[in-house]
Design a protein around this nucleic acid. Structure first.
Lengths: 184, 184
DNA sequence: GCTTTTAGCTAACGACATTAGCTGAACCTG
DNA sequence: CAGGTTCAGCTAATGTCGTTAGCTAAAAGC
């Protein structure tokens, strides 16, 4: 019985792969264990429950998204920063649909909150390139986040019913946001 | 053994109540049956499976949302129509969080598609009040839908972390959309 | 080397979805 | 209204999945 050398991070990483490949709904203790070459109950030495595993995965996804946003916007400002952030967010959500889906509907949790705060911080940094009334900062931030989140989730979920180019729509959306944020 | 007089619609309606009250994740055959005063296996005389029940529920939610949008925008145009549609959409999603959650991640299905098309049609009607280049219609439509969907789902999911008034943010968002859609 | 800790395992239980097969209520048909 | 047919809802049983209990041997500490 050679040990597998697992830890909480390894289990969550395997869960992330399962969620991305088979979909959020197929995230099951059995599939995660199988991927790690281990029997199902062994996972409980590293995560308390499936719910906790989902929480951890949600935090991982939010952290990765935050990193992606930070890296993408590094060194840009104004419209360039906005476009970079928007594309980075869409890329992450479409490349890791299962991972991100867990964050929606996840319960309040310090780790997830902290990661979410970093995402918000990156978006706030993008807004700094626009002259926005401090009193409206929060509203603009929420609008930006909602728009990007909504586009990406709608696309990965049903997709938009008709088939006009989605990339083109997204570039139009970036332009729409830029124009709107530029002029109060 | 007096008969309960169920049918597919009654089962889906009960499922909708369960989903709204206990959350999407708690939508279980047992809870639906209990609400109807019936034993679990009896449901299978009316729906083929839990997956099919979810599909039916998704279609119901999308249909209700479409009706709400149609009713709310009736007789309005331009900014008024936009505001009415936005508020109607947010109201529906927040009043029926579980119901709507099922539509995200639902599989392609003729009934859901048709209902979704009616939602899109109502939003397209709103856009008619703005002078939008026909070539950009689809992009504007997707942007509008994404923004409203994103705001409502983010709000009902984690809620926005900080506590500035959400209603106020939403009104700002409506204004943002109106200004953006109006310009050249 | 010897002890202690603990990762991973087998066995077992409970919740839930689903199927098979029964029974009697409702609905026909004459 | 009698007799037959349909079928809604039930009980019993099976399979999957999450979770717990308790064992064993691999690692880690002395």
């Amino acid at each position: 019985m050679p040990r597998a050398g697992l830890d909480r991070a390894a289990v969550i990483a395997a869960a992330a792969e399962v969620a991305d490949e088979r979909g959020f709904g197929q995230l099951t203790m059995g599939l995660v264990a199988e991927r790690l070459g281990v029997r199902t109950p062994s996972l409980y030495k590293h995560v308390e429950s499936l719910a906790a595993l989902r929480q951890g995965l949600a935090a991982l996804a939010m952290t990765e998204l935050g990193d992606a946003l930070r890296d993408a916007t590094q060194g840009y400002a104004g419209r360039d920063a906005l476009a970079a952030a928007a594309r980075a967010m869409r890329s992450y959500l479409t490349e890791h649909p299962g991972r991100y889906a867990v964050t929606v509907g996840a319960v309040v949790d310090p780790e997830l909150d902290a990661a979410g705060a970093r995402v918000v911080e990156s978006l706030a940094a993008v807004l700094r390139g626009y002259r926005i009334d401090p009193a409206e900062q929060t509203h603009a931030l929420r609008t930006l986040r909602s728009t990007l989140h909504g586009f990406a989730t709608l696309q990965t979920a049903h997709g938009f019913q008709w088939n006009a180019d989605t990339d083109q729509s997204f570039e139009w959306l970036i332009d729409f946001l830029d124009r709107g944020l530029r002029r109060p």
